[in-house]
Computed example of a mutant assay.
Amino acid sequence: MKILFVCLGNICRSPAAEGAFRALAPGVASDSAGTSDWHVGAPPYGPMQAAARARGLDLSDLRARHFVAADFARFDLIVAMDGDNLANIERLRPAGSAVPVRLFTDFAPECGASEVPDPYYTRDFDAALDLIGACAAGLAAALPLSGGGAEA
């Protein structure tokens, strides 16, 4: 199983999602990307790294990259942080690709959120990480090899 987490710039939400998920499911390959190319090669945003580090998540080895159509061939599941990014991902879907694209919040319906708000704009890194943590736990539990039983 290979999972790709996608947000807009790949400097806040998706690297935090990757970090939270890999802490819960270290045996599952994961990566993150952004639908924009604004920050390609940059590390996660400093305030997000600091907030994640305070929770024991080290994002310092991650670097932003641009989501590309070829990602549909490289990943088994693509997870978007919000509806706009999901739509941007779907616009790049190659004909015949059946790779599922889901909202991250689908994995934590108990949170009542339809998307992960972008803390780059809201400045609420802790609330974003709370939601990301819940979604990552839900996704990890949904994976067949995690013992969750349900398929992602």
Rank of each mutant, 00 (worst) to 15 (best):
F5C: 06
F5H: 07
L8I: 08
L8H: 13
G9P: 00
I11M: 03
C12H: 03
C12K: 01
R13P: 12
S14N: 08
S14C: 08
A17G: 05
G19R: 12
F21G: 04
R22A: 12
R22Q: 14
A23K: 15
V28C: 13
A29H: 14
A33S: 01
A33D: 02
G34D: 00
G34C: 06
S36M: 08
D37M: 01
A42N: 14
A42D: 14
G46R: 15
R53A: 15
G56Q: 10
G56L: 12
L57C: 06
R63I: 03
R65N: 05
H66M: 05
A69L: 08
D71F: 08
I78L: 04
V79W: 02
M81G: 10
L86C: 12
L86T: 03
I89A: 07
L92M: 13
R93D: 14
G96Q: 12
G96R: 11
P100M: 04
D106E: 15
A108E: 08
G112A: 09
P119T: 02
Y120K: 07
Y121P: 06
Y121M: 10
F125H: 10
F125K: 04
D126N: 11
A127M: 00
I132N: 02
L139D: 01
A140K: 02
A142F: 00
G147A: 06
G148E: 04
G149W: 00
